[in-house]
Design a protein around this nucleic acid. Structure first.
Length: 376
RNA sequence: GUGGGUAUAGCUCAGUUGGCAGAGCACCGGAUUGUGGUUCCGGGUGCCGAGGGUUCGAGCCCCUUUACCCACC
């Protein structure tokens, strides 16, 4: 399903076939947690912004409106009217980032809903059943995302359990999707590598999950507080043990610079809330660096957010107008900011792929890796 | 016209027997990495209506004055 087209050092240019179309990689997945992009963007907007693949969330959609409801309405693609590929996160991360009180056992995790506080149990089988009901193209494994820092022995035991959970995920998902009424019989499962920043645990865990011969593999549990250098070192350590013929997904990353450096180290898939969340707070990405559109210095600035941007907002509206919308708390402010940022990220990936196609990625990385993360 | 009240940050207002000028909101700036959109962190931006007096020292006490508010002629 993954086809490697071209390589420059560890960086890979490729394609990935899903039931809802081919994805050109490296790719950034646009995050629509609750079947909508926060900031008032729709599936139709995603098309306009050049989104190839959308990411939604197992945990959130299970809590509300309920995965069975979505299944009964024809699956997530039909529900949100997105006909491209969808990846669903497993809920593992949310349990460890949102739930305050939780109990981890071999069977799974008990925790309280962030919506109404009711007790929820989720384990590998539950996560796979929910993701099968949603009918995404890529289901993520149910894992434990350990904090950094965590004690070595805790991480070691956690990785072993995540491996056992992955075996259960594989069995359960195959079972759900072999049923006659499966929403998306071609749904694939990606395994998730853990191990905090302990390279030996990362490698040992990667070897174990690679044996399961899944359609793709993710590096999870990074960008949770460790330094950029530690993150890059960890990717480098584990990358050589990741199957060459499968896509690699660095979960939750990151800044434009993180993505450029991730691609340089052999990563194919990224996702991050940053363009949407930061956009909602007025932080905009440009080809000259990051700006805060709320700053007073843009009060009288009649130029577009980024003269080098081809997004619908930059074609028409000024920095001064967008600043006004933010100061006035208009919903349009968020919509414009998020649209611009998502277009920036999708365009960034286009340029990364172009550079790889041309064999000029090293120069591209040198020019932009630091620049794009710099505040101006 | 007479009597009373008020006047302190952009706004609404605290400010003790006279002792370094305060709060909320607004404003200015920062944070945010497999998303609880309303979150978190930092910053006081001031001729204390004006003028004079008492005092070592006045937002506070005294006098004058201005503006606004209330009541009564």
């Amino acid at each position: 399903m993954y086809q490697l087209l071209k390589q420059e050092g560890h960086a890979r240019r490729g394609t990935f076939q899903t039931p809802h179309g081919i994805v050109q990689t490296p790719v950034f997945m646009n995050v629509g947690t609750q079947a909508a992009i926060k900031g008032a963007l729709s599936a139709a907007d995603l098309k306009t912004l050049g989104c190839q693949i959308e990411l939604s969330n197992t945990y959130h959609l299970h809590v509300r409106p309920g995965d069975e409801l979505i299944r009964d309405l024809g699956g997530l693609h039909k529900f949100m009217t997105w006909d491209g590929p969808i990846l669903t996160d497993s809920g593992g991360f949310q349990i460890f980032s949102l739930a305050e009180l939780r109990k981890i056992k071999e069977e799974g995790v008990s925790f309280n809903s962030h919506v109404d506080g009711r007790k929820i149990f989720m384990g590998p089988e539950e996560s796979m059943r929910i993701q099968a009901n949603l009918g995404s193209d890529i289901a993520m494994a149910f894992d434990e995302c350990v904090k950094i820092p965590s004690p070595y022995d805790y991480v070691k035991n956690s990785c072993a359990r995540t491996t056992r959970w992955l075996q259960r995920c594989k069995t359960a998902l195959a079972d759900y999707n072999s049923r006659e009424d499966a929403v998306n019989p071609g749904q694939m499962l990606f395994g998730i590598n853990q191990g905090a920043v302990f390279h030996d645990l990362r490698i040992e865990h990667m070897k174990q999950i690679a044996d399961l011969d899944l359609p793709g593999y993710a590096i999870g549990g990074l960008a949770v507080g460790e330094s950029h250098q530690e993150m890059y070192n960890t990717i480098e350590a584990v990358e050589e043990y990741m199957p060459k013929d499968k896509p690699r997904y660095l979960m939750g990353v990151g800044t434009p610079g993180n993505i450029i450096e991730g691609v340089w180290r052999g990563v194919d898939f990224f996702d991050c809330v940053m363009p949407a969340r930061n956009g909602r707070h007025g932080h905009l990405f440009t080809w000259s660096g990051i700006i805060n559109i709320k700053n007073e210095k843009y009060k009288l600035d009649d130029s577009p957010i980024d003269p080098a941007c081809d997004c619908p907002v930059c074609q028409r509206y000024s920095r001064a107008y967008l600043r006004h919308l933010f100061k006035a708390d208009e919903m349009l402010a968020m919509r414009f900011a998020v649209a611009h940022n998502l277009r920036f990220y999708n365009r960034l990936m286009e340029r990364i792929r172009d550079a790889l196609d041309a064999g000029e990625y090293e120069a591209f990385r040198k020019q932009y890796s630091t620049l794009l993360d710099t505040r101006i």
